[in-house]
Each structure stands twice: as structure tokens, then as C-alpha cells.
Simulated assay, not measured.
Amino acid sequence: MSELRQGFTTGTAAAAAAKAALLLLLHGHAPNHVEVPLPADREEPTKRLRIAVERCGIENSSARAVVRKDAGDDPDVTHGAEIHALVSWQPGSGPLHVDLAGGMGVGRVTLPGLAVDVGEPAINPGPQRQIRAAVREAVHGQSGTARVCIEVPQGRELARKTMNPRLGIVDGISILGTHGIVRPFSHAAWAASVTQALRVVAAQGGDRVVFTTGRKSERLYAECFPDLPARCMIQAADFFAHAMRAAEEQGLTRVHWSLFFGKLVKQAQGFENTHAHGADIDFSALAHWCGQAGAPHDLVRQCAEANTARQVLGLLQTRTNAQTLNRLLHDLAARAIRHAASFAPGVRVGYAVFDFDGSRLLRPDFQLQPAGD
């Protein structure tokens, strides 16, 4: 995948625009470029990006800066969109305060189950922290209040091409970005990278592997099972069927999947690829399975009307006992295992399932021992 050009997220664009506007207010100079910090990463905790500022100017007592989103070679609907930050500054005493708002073209959350509370602008926690960090850099220790309003003039139009309407996010797009950069999503390239990684494991005489759906699920698994060599952990992302088939083709006989509740539900439904744009959670089926696990009728009804898997999990954790949730998790894992077996009959499968806060919900039903070096 190295031949594909990386880009940056809407969160990084918003942070750069906020910093540029504030620098203009404080110093009277409109920057052509700004450097912004990226969300903290275990491997590269201080990584930064230099972002071009398309334009920057004074509006009454505020400043507006515009950054054009560059998604690199990723097929992102927001590629090329203008991300605006309208910023005002009020000097004061005490600690810095950043008042962050969403304006025109930034969605508003209307349904529970997302990372942002109902009624709030759809600016995810990671980008919120990134914007505030960029503001702190711009003020360089000064005290006062920075009011930052993020706007996306094309946001309402772009949102129709996303999942936002289905998720109850209205009037615009979401400001996203867990890592601050966009890694191009090429199906063929990613699938090929999974196959190549499996070949490396097989070439070293390994017969077991851990598939993860991303960096966080990989990290959480590694924290729970620290003795497994890193080469045996492969980010298979959404490629459920491909990963299983490729594992069997390379002679591997034991697989663990490390994932979160939503991906487990999708695998339990039997999707060959669990990407959000082609694999919707069947909340009626999930609610039925909750009922089979012992959830009360009113909760089953709420699950059927849920908006996200996160919301269903939260309902189960707050409204039922641990035994009911445990039965459901084991049932979902059993269903997922049956589908995995249909893709790769000769591979034994187990599931490590994690909560969104990082706690482990389900341990695999068999133990993967470290592969020999």
C-alpha cells in the first residue's frame, strides 16, 4: 500500500484552520502553512503535520481560516472540501478556555449510541482534543478564551453521501479522525497485504495467527496476551472471509479474531466484508438474539430500535446482568465461528471481544500459545 498517497482527516483540517485563524488574530499575519499535532499514537506520540492554509482573513473582531481537505488517494467524499474555522479571542486571567462549536455544514447528533452526546455538534472526541491542542500552541501560554466555530460550507450536500442520516446526524458531516492522517483504503491492496503477512507467518513455521480489525484491537489483544510474537498479529480490517480463506491456504490451523462488539455482530450475521458501507447491522436479529440470551421484552424492543451497536451494548450493560450479556456474547461468537468455518473449514477459530473503553468482554474459548521463534 506504500504507493498510495496519504492524506489528512477533517479533524486535522479543522485544527489547522483554527490555529491559522488564531495566529492571525494574535500576530496580525496570515500564515500560508501551519504545523499541527496529531492525536497521540503509541508508536509516534509527537507526530505532526504541516498543512497548507488556503486563505485567512479578518471578519469584524474574529478571524476565519480555510483549509482544503486532502484525503490523498483515499476515496473520501470530503476530499477537496473546504474546512473553515471562525475564531475569536478574549484575553483574560486564569487557564486557557476553548469554546468549541459546530456551525454551517457540521452535523448535529440527534440519536444516542455515538461518541458525542445528543444535541452536540458531530465533532468526535479525537478531533476535539486535536483542535484544542492546536489552539494551545497558537496562544503560546497566554490566558483567555478562544471561541472556535468549525464550518463546512458543502457539509449538508456531502452528508447525503455518508452514513450520517442513518446514524441520526443531521445538517452536515462529522469532523472525524482517530489518527489525524488518512491511510488510503484500497480493497485489493489491503487484501494482498493480509495474504502477504500470512505467508510470512507460514514461512516461519507458524500455524496460528491473530486477526485484528485495527490498531486499537491489536493493542488491546497484545496487552492481554503479551507473549504472542508481533508477526502473528495481522490487521485484517473488514476482510472476514478473505482472511479466513487465506489463512487456510497458507496452512494455518488456529485463528483468533480480536474485535469490538459491532464487528462481532456483523461477523455473526455472516458478512464476508464487514465495512460500514456494505454491511448494515440487522437490529431486529440482534434484538432477537438478546431476547434469547435472557433480556427482558422492553429491552429487546429498545435494542430493535437502536441506532448503533454501541447503544445496544450500553443497554445490555446497564439494564441486564452479566450472565445475560455473557450468554449473548457466546452466542454471537458461536454464530461467527460457524460462518468462519464456512469460509475455512480446516481452521479453528476463537474470539477476543473488547468494549469500546478497552475492557475485555470475551476471552477466546481456546488459548493461543506463542509461536516458536
Rank of each mutant, 00 (worst) to 15 (best):
M1C: 13
L4F: 14
Q6C: 11
G7I: 11
F8A: 07
T9F: 05
G11I: 06
G11W: 06
A13W: 03
A13M: 03
A15R: 12
K19Q: 15
L24I: 06
L25F: 10
A30S: 13
V34Y: 08
L38H: 06
R42A: 12
E44G: 00
K47V: 05
K47D: 12
K47A: 15
L49F: 06
L49S: 12
V67R: 11
A71F: 01
A71I: 10
G72N: 02
P75K: 01
P75G: 00
V77L: 13
G80R: 03
A81N: 05
A81K: 07
E82G: 02
A85S: 14
P91D: 05
G105V: 08
G105S: 10
V106W: 02
V106Q: 05
R108V: 15
R108G: 01
V116G: 07
V116S: 09
V116P: 09
D117T: 10
A122C: 08
R132K: 15
V139F: 11
G141I: 04
C149M: 15
I150W: 13
E151C: 13
E151H: 13
Q154M: 13
G155Y: 12
E157R: 14
E157P: 03
L158F: 13
L158Q: 09
P165T: 10
P165I: 12
R166F: 01
V170W: 11
V170Y: 07
D171F: 13
I173C: 10
I173W: 09
I175G: 10
G177C: 07
W190F: 12
V201E: 02
A202D: 06
D207F: 07
R208H: 05
V209M: 06
Y221I: 00
C224G: 03
P226G: 06
D227T: 12
C232V: 06
C232M: 14
I234H: 09
Q235G: 08
H242A: 10
R245G: 15
A247R: 03
E248H: 08
E249V: 02
E249H: 14
Q250N: 13
L252P: 00
L252K: 09
R254P: 08
R254H: 15
R254V: 11
F260N: 01
F261I: 02
K266Q: 01
F271R: 04
N273A: 04
N273L: 03
S284V: 14
L286H: 09
G291D: 02
G291T: 09
G294H: 04
P296N: 08
A304H: 08
A304N: 04
A306W: 11
A309F: 01
L316Y: 04
Q317T: 08
Q317N: 08
T324H: 11
L329I: 10
A334G: 12
A340W: 01
A344F: 02
G346Y: 09
R348P: 04
G350D: 05
V353Y: 11
D355R: 15
D355N: 14
F356N: 04
S359M: 09
R363C: 09
